[in-house]
């Protein structure tokens, strides 16, 4: 409960008026900005990326009258730049963003968390649901999957810049990412993984959106709104695993 002299926010007011709930701030704006920028950019990158990989429609007539692939690439590279910016912000926030955004929350470490990982899986399989552990931030399964997504994005960024740098072997990008081709055993292998792993991102989106909505519906504790507002109302008498 806040002791500010300023007028309470609506959240604080509601929390004060309904003592059985409390409001916790989980995701401050840098994390929310990171999330939404990445979400928009990943969708953009996927759409433009698939066009670049296999241009599914073509234009006709004077070449100078069109710039379809040019725009697709421009948008792709711009979105990639934004994702990199967002990633840098996210990395900063791993150290400055508090416990729920911390690098410590990337993967389960304690034995208890590992046990809880199993229980969470059981919960989603609708087995022993009463034993499901409650987390304020990410539960171990989320930690795993989101960290996997970070890794995927990292691979995409590295392979992407590896390919991008080839257009100017004298340039800074090539100086930084010229090793990518040889490291993958050839730039075409890097291209292959860049393309194939995009599908994992595509598969992730419906699962992620569904589970977020599902949690919101099942728990009625504002999981969905937390990624907009930054916080959730939770039952005051529940003790969370990561509190």
């Amino acid at each position: 409960m806040t002791t500010s002299t300023k007028p309470p926010t609506i959240a604080e007011a509601v929390a004060a008026a309904t003592p059985e709930y409390r409001w916790v701030l989980l995701w401050r704006w840098p994390l929310r900005v990171t999330h939404w920028l990445s979400a928009i950019c990943i969708v953009t990158l996927t759409v433009t990326g698939f066009y670049i990989g296999k241009p599914y429609f073509t234009t006709w007539g004077e070449a100078s009258a069109h710039y379809l692939m040019g725009w697709a690439r421009f948008i792709h590279f711009t979105a990639a730049g934004i994702v990199v910016g967002a990633a840098i912000l996210r990395i900063y926030w791993m150290f400055a963003g508090g416990r729920y955004a911390s690098w410590r929350a990337l993967l389960p470490v304690k034995t208890k968390d590992w046990v809880n990982l199993l229980k969470t899986v059981q919960y989603y399989m609708m087995v022993k649901q009463e034993e499901a552990p409650r987390y304020l931030g990410h539960h171990p399964l989320q930690q795993f999957s989101y960290t996997a997504i970070y890794t995927l994005v990292l691979i995409h960024v590295v392979t992407g810049f590896g390919m991008y740098g080839m257009s100017n072997p004298g340039g800074a990008i090539y100086a930084l990412f010229g090793w990518v081709g040889p490291a993958f055993g050839g730039i075409q292998n890097a291209r292959f993984w860049h393309h194939v792993l995009t599908w994992v991102l595509v598969w992730f989106i419906p699962v992620h959106v569904y589970l977020a909505f599902r949690a919101d519906v099942m728990d009625r504790e504002g999981e969905m709104s937390s990624i907009f507002s930054g916080g959730r109302f939770v039952r005051a008498d529940v003790k969370f695993e990561d509190e």
Binding site: P55, F57, T58, T59, W60, A63, S64, A65, H66, Y67, L68, M69, G70, A72, M166, S167, P169, G170
Partner: peptide, 19 residues
């Protein structure tokens, strides 16, 4: 020092999306 792609006489068609 440069890719075929970046020196190709058909590059304009690539950028225009003409394949």
């Amino acid at each position: 020092g440069k890719r075929i792609h970046d020196q190709c006489p058909r590059r304009a068609h690539f950028d225009a999306g003409q394949f």
